[in-house]
Computed example of a mutant assay.
Amino acid sequence: MSTSGAPTLRQQRLGFELRKLRENAGLTSTAAAARVGVNQAHMSRIEVGRYPVSADRVRAFARAYTCTDQSLIDALVGMTGRRVRGWWEEYRDILRPSALDLAELEYHCTAMRIASVIHVPGLLQTADHARALFLDVFPPLSPPEVEHRVSHRIKRQAVLYGDHSASLSTVVHEAALRMGVGGPAVARRQIRQLIEMSAREDISVRVIPFGAGAFPGSGQPIVYFSASVPQLDTVQLDTDHGSEFLDAYAYLAKYRMILDRLDSCALSPVESRDLMARIEKET
């Protein structure tokens, strides 16, 4: 039975990785289908994420493709089955699919690295800060649309709590801290939240000060999601037309280098907290 609705980013990624294993083995889809005992149409739907695939079937594919990377096989097995009915599913007919894919990525990742120049990362925003941002988008959103986006953003922050929370490393430019989003009171509460979150062992908030000079990248927010194996990592870029997700090896390597360079431009965690405290008093 095909998956209901359009496949999620996670389902598409599983299909893509199985296709990549097949191509690396030098097999056509027809030959691979014959080896694992499925028809051609079934194989095509699996490789685009439109047909649920079982753990046993993934292992059969791995044997047929002579894949010996057990860590990768185990990680792919972990992606099998039907769509996880996470909390984000309640927004399926309300927000664009990329917003749901982002929440699902955050839910399944093991760690995140974020770089942002003019905005505080969404996972660290207060509700009032997020609301002020959504009230200023173009074209304007209706009040219900604003509140749906705010609630979705705040619910995403659950990944930072609990026994299986993902670690978070962020680099934020001083410009983001001085934007004054929502007015002085909202801005002060936002900076106070950043200071409090940065005190946690599993969360790092480092600031690039104005005096640091030039830095790499275009200034667009970057999120690097680490998976259980590096081959399944994903980069998300936040653009004016929505989220863009990248998983090609060259892109992953490029953005790891950019994030490393941004890290080298940032103050230490202690220096960053001191700067944030000064900005809070000045706001």
Rank of each mutant, 00 (worst) to 15 (best):
M1P: 13
T3M: 07
G5K: 02
L9Y: 14
L14A: 09
F16M: 09
F16Y: 14
F16P: 01
E17Q: 15
E17M: 02
L18E: 11
R19F: 00
L21F: 07
N24P: 01
A25S: 15
L27P: 07
L27E: 14
T28S: 15
T30I: 15
A32L: 15
V36R: 10
V36S: 12
V36I: 15
V38G: 05
V38A: 11
N39Q: 06
Q40E: 12
H42S: 05
H42M: 05
Y51Q: 15
S54N: 02
S54Y: 00
R57N: 02
V58R: 00
R59P: 04
F61A: 12
A62P: 06
Y65T: 11
T66C: 09
T68P: 08
D69Y: 02
Q70G: 13
S71V: 07
L72R: 11
I73R: 04
I73M: 04
A75I: 10
L76C: 14
M79F: 03
T80Y: 07
R83Q: 15
R83M: 12
G86Y: 00
E90W: 00
Y91P: 03
Y91D: 08
D93W: 11
I94C: 05
P97Q: 08
A99Y: 15
A99W: 13
L100V: 05
D101L: 05
A103C: 01
E104F: 03
L105C: 06
L105K: 07
E106D: 10
C109F: 06
M112S: 10
I114T: 12
A115I: 03
P121Y: 02
P121K: 11
L123I: 07
L123W: 08
T126A: 07
H129V: 06
A130F: 11
F134G: 03
D136L: 04
F138T: 13
P139I: 04
P140R: 10
P143C: 04
P144G: 04
E145S: 14
E147P: 01
R149H: 03
V150E: 06
S151D: 14
K155N: 10
G162Q: 04
D163Y: 09
S165Q: 15
A176C: 11
G180I: 02
G183L: 09
V186R: 01
R188S: 09
R188D: 07
L194W: 05
L194S: 11
I195S: 00
S198A: 13
S198L: 03
S198T: 01
R200N: 09
R200P: 03
R200S: 08
E201I: 01
I203D: 08
S204R: 11
R206E: 08
P209E: 00
F210N: 09
A214K: 14
P216C: 07
S218M: 14
F225G: 12
F225R: 09
S228Y: 05
P230E: 02
T234H: 07
Q236K: 11
G242T: 10
E244G: 02
F245Y: 15
Y249P: 12
A253P: 03
Y255G: 04
M257Q: 14
D260P: 03
D260Y: 07
L262T: 05
S264W: 05
C265E: 12
P269V: 12
V270M: 08
E271Q: 15
D274I: 08
L275T: 10
R278Y: 05
I279K: 02
I279H: 02
K281M: 03
E282D: 13
E282G: 06
